Simulated scan of single mutants.
Amino acid sequence: MSRQALILRYAGFAVLATLANLGVQRLVLLGGDSGIVFALAVGTGTLAGLVVKYVLDKRWIFFDDATGLRAHGRKFTLYTVMGIVTTAIFWGTETAFWLIWHTDAMRETGAVIGLMVGYVIKYNLDRRFVFTNARLGATP
């Protein structure tokens, strides 16, 4: 797979995971608007997006054919930890832009920059630490 195809596929999967996250959040939020319902919506949405992205990345980005509960459990745990690291980059960049400029436009600019940097780092962390036995189609 070419580098460009890999980047487009990875970006497309990020969009799908985001849509899954937000879709699940909206479904849960139909149950009310309390703080508990909101926290449940964010948590279940995040989990849904994480699972969708893991399944797609495992199969279509890293071409990892490992099976079994043990292999999936270990990889999914590592995948989640790498996501925590890169989420901190995203949230940090978004927050920094908000604190500096105090506008929604700049906050969202920071969010987009943070997401782009985070996803590049996440790909490399996943390639190095999560999908170590995978057959890669390309190296961005």
Rank of each mutant, 00 (worst) to 15 (best):
Y119Q: 10
V130P: 09
T77S: 12
N133S: 14
R107W: 08
A111Q: 02
R70P: 03
F131Q: 10
G92K: 03
T67V: 12
G92N: 06
A105D: 12
A105K: 06
V85E: 08
F129L: 15
G118P: 05
V85S: 09
L125S: 15
N124G: 04
F76Q: 06
T87S: 06
R135P: 03
M106D: 01
G114W: 01
V112T: 13
G110Y: 08
R128D: 13
I113N: 02
L99N: 15
F97D: 02
G68D: 13
M82S: 10
W98L: 12
L69C: 05
G118T: 00
D126R: 01
T87P: 00
H72L: 08
Y119I: 12
V120T: 07
V120Y: 11
I100S: 03
A134Q: 11
T93N: 11
Y119V: 11
E94A: 09
I121K: 00
G110E: 12
K122D: 12
N124M: 14
R127Q: 14
I89V: 15
L69P: 07
G68C: 10
T86H: 03
V130E: 06
T103S: 13
A105Q: 11
G73K: 00
R135Y: 05
M116I: 11
A96E: 03
F129C: 11
R135M: 07
V117R: 07
N124S: 10
A88P: 05
G73T: 03
T109E: 04
L99E: 15
L115V: 04
T86W: 00
G137K: 08
T86Q: 02
A66S: 15
G110A: 10
F131Y: 13
I113S: 05
I89H: 04
G118H: 00
R74K: 07
T103N: 06
T93C: 10
T86R: 01
G118K: 00
N124E: 14
D126K: 02
L125V: 11
V81L: 14
T95I: 04
G83V: 08
A66L: 04
I84V: 15
E108H: 14
A111N: 08
L69E: 08
K75C: 00
A111C: 00
A134H: 07
Y79V: 12
I89N: 06
